[in-house]
Design a protein around this nucleic acid. Sequence first.
DNA 1: TGTACATCAGTGAACGCGCGTTCACTGATGTAC
DNA 2: TGTACATCAGTGAACGCGCGTTCACTGATGTAC
Lengths: 205, 205
Amino acid sequence: MAKRGYHHGNLREALIKGCLTLIEKRGPTGFTLSEAAREAGVTPAAVYRHFEGREDLIAAAALQGYDIFGDLMAFAYADGKPSDLKAFEATGRAYLAFANKYPGHYVAMFESGISIQRTPELNAAAKRALGVLETAAVALSQHIPEEKRPPPQMFSAHIWALSHGVVELFSRGSPGTKSPFPPEDLLESGIGIYLRGLGLVAPDS
Amino acid sequence: MAKRGYHHGNLREALIKGCLTLIEKRGPTGFTLSEAAREAGVTPAAVYRHFEGREDLIAAAALQGYDIFGDLMAFAYADGKPSDLKAFEATGRAYLAFANKYPGHYVAMFESGISIQRTPELNAAAKRALGVLETAAVALSQHIPEEKRPPPQMFSAHIWALSHGVVELFSRGSPGTKSPFPPEDLLESGIGIYLRGLGLVAPDS
DNA sequence: TGTACATCAGTGAACGCGCGTTCACTGATGTAC
DNA sequence: TGTACATCAGTGAACGCGCGTTCACTGATGTAC
């Protein structure tokens, strides 16, 4: 990644990477374009060869995040194999794994305040990624007797909220209160209890 | 709240209020001391008569938040009346109600990055407020057969995470994705399903 | 293979700005007598 | 009730700083012939 001479080589990628590192450390509003440039070994002005400005750089980071996230979720879901239930649980784990492995992306996507509507490209990437979660929920909810089946969007909203809550409260350097449980266990057990409440897993397990 | 003359009267309160408004609008790192002073109709330097600096002002806002939050939670819990279950559900609703009614406080408390350990006073207020949630969880979990009872801290962590997730994703001006359900319903139904999963409410309700 | 030249990706100086914090100050308030 | 004075809560000017953005520029690269 070391700059070789006058030309950087892949400044665009280096800037996004710097942006992600900083955004992870300082939060989205604490991120500065100048510092990202510095981290890449480049003048702040050079950023404008690749991005329209500060916001545009963050949006690029978020887009990259949604792409990775979408891939991960799709892979975890695996078209509902081996079963709707297993596939669903796998997406939950993938959500947390993504948040852990790509914290900068996660923040750029969900805490930076950049709108998903910013560009059609960003919108499409986000819709695709979050769509996997909903698809998984829809498929799984078919197994609930129709009359006691909650709307699938509600179902997936519950799971998303629980996952996001675990990430924000227990998976990051949080406001002092650490849970005594690893976030993975917390999410897994939480989803398990929830699914039992829907009659989707055996009550004695 | 209009300033009357050379002396403001209750600058301290006005500054906290301004801090909360700004923190709600721009997020914790977007908040500036100068703007809070401006909003109160006062020179930035005047702030230093009442607070040690920027951080201290945010901490004061968070402290106020934990106090209100603690009161609300304690009131909702009502010492477990009329039943452990009802009282527990009431604290869940109170959590969301607090986040809705005091969004600035909520952000100062949970997103500003100020440590709960900052002062003993802040620590005590936070412990008290979050303690109510755990107390409610402990009491309720007594109703679960001992061998299938999850640790109460896990129980309360699940509920806290779900509540926080609903707040962050669906209760604020969020990253584009709005749920078609009111956050209150989302949380209520989510908690309901979860409790059913624990065998704490009837499976047919 | 060598040369001329267009294109591209960076520089570096400059801009105006708002920030947090400090300082000596001053106007208003309240208390002692 | 009136006056002297200490205390308090504000002012306003100044500081050094880093920010995002612009601009004319220049060094490196790659292509045409």
